[in-house]
Simulated scan of single mutants.
Amino acid sequence: MRILLAGASGFLGTRLADRLTADGHQLTRLVRRPPRTPDERQWNPSAGQLDPVAVAEADAVVNLAGAGVGDKRWNDDYRRLIRTSRVDSTTTLATTVAGLPADDRPRVLLNSSAVGWYGNTGDRVVEEDAPAGEGFLADVCRVWEAATRPAEDAGVRVVRLRTGLPLHRDGGLLKPQLLPFKLGIAGRLGSGRQWLPWISMEDWLDATRFLLDHDEISGPVNVVGPNPVTNAEFTRELARQLHRPAIVPIPALALKVALGGFAHEALTSTRVLPSVLTRAGYPYHHPTLPTALTAALKG
């Protein structure tokens, strides 16, 4: 399959690019700088600039572009970047796809989204048919997903990847926690009762490939593990596997001082189930947190 990938340099994109290439797919990466290799194409999503030929050459488009939500302390400027980096890239890709002649359009657009769509659900279980919640990330996800509509209206299969928290020792949720845990100065966040929609990195990669191949699946898909846990449960299991104590809870006030606006999202409870993947028969490699953490810590 010929795949056009946006966001190939990110935490998820680098690993997906490696996996797709290893599987024998022909991969083309979209980059903002001048291309350095034959498999790169330049684009400027903030200006809506993308060569339609690069899209017409692809059987599938995967868009993972967007500024990291946990990479920096949130202020007004970074909030704008989180939003525009997602909406601009999605709009540019979706409108370019829609503008191609029908025979030249890719068969599928897999576009990143997030479980932030649901907002704070407390202990309530949500599936893909749940409406958008409230809060900054829910608002971002609403406009982010809406930006895929030109491609969908043009008859292209669109899958919106509502990704949870992929586990890998080199990034995401896990990396910043490892040193405090190893030093014995870590613990649950706030009350610890908030639900964490984790997924192993191997399952995230394989679920994404699964969705590329399954033409009957479209719309939102929760890319999360089948057994969500609370922050307190996650903390206990991580401490057990690292053979370290986890007895120093981090108060909500301290998080707000350290993280600014992101603190609210870090304390959000999102109890999400992967109903679409489950019904489609996706075979999880790591259906429980202990096995997923074991794999993540091995890298």
Rank of each mutant, 00 (worst) to 15 (best):
G70Y: 08
V108W: 04
M1E: 13
T148H: 05
R36F: 13
T163D: 03
H25L: 04
A114K: 08
A252T: 14
G219V: 13
V53W: 14
R80H: 12
A58V: 03
T95H: 10
R86M: 04
R36E: 15
R209Y: 10
L50D: 02
L137A: 11
I3L: 12
P34I: 11
H286K: 08
P166W: 01
D203K: 02
V125D: 13
K175I: 03
A94S: 10
G116M: 10
I247E: 11
G219N: 13
D51Q: 12
L81P: 01
A258S: 10
I82A: 08
L196H: 02
S200Q: 01
G70A: 15
P166Y: 03
A154P: 05
P220E: 07
I199H: 00
R19D: 13
P180M: 02
A58R: 04
W117P: 03
E127I: 12
R142A: 10
H25W: 06
V115N: 04
G135M: 05
L109E: 00
A65E: 09
T278P: 02
V272P: 00
R79N: 07
A280Q: 08
T90L: 01
T163R: 05
T95G: 07
W195E: 01
V143L: 08
G99T: 05
P38T: 05
R149Q: 15
K256S: 13
L253D: 12
V115M: 08
V140W: 01
N227F: 11
H286V: 03
V69T: 13
H168K: 13
T288L: 15
G184V: 03
D213Y: 12
W144L: 03
V156C: 09
I3A: 11
D139A: 15
V158S: 03
R80M: 11
P38F: 08
L183C: 09
A239N: 06
P274Q: 14
D213T: 15
Q194W: 02
A67Y: 08
W198P: 03
T95L: 05
T84G: 10
L173M: 09
E202L: 14
L178E: 02
N120L: 06
T230C: 05
F210E: 13
R124W: 07
E233I: 03
F262T: 14
L205W: 14
S46C: 10
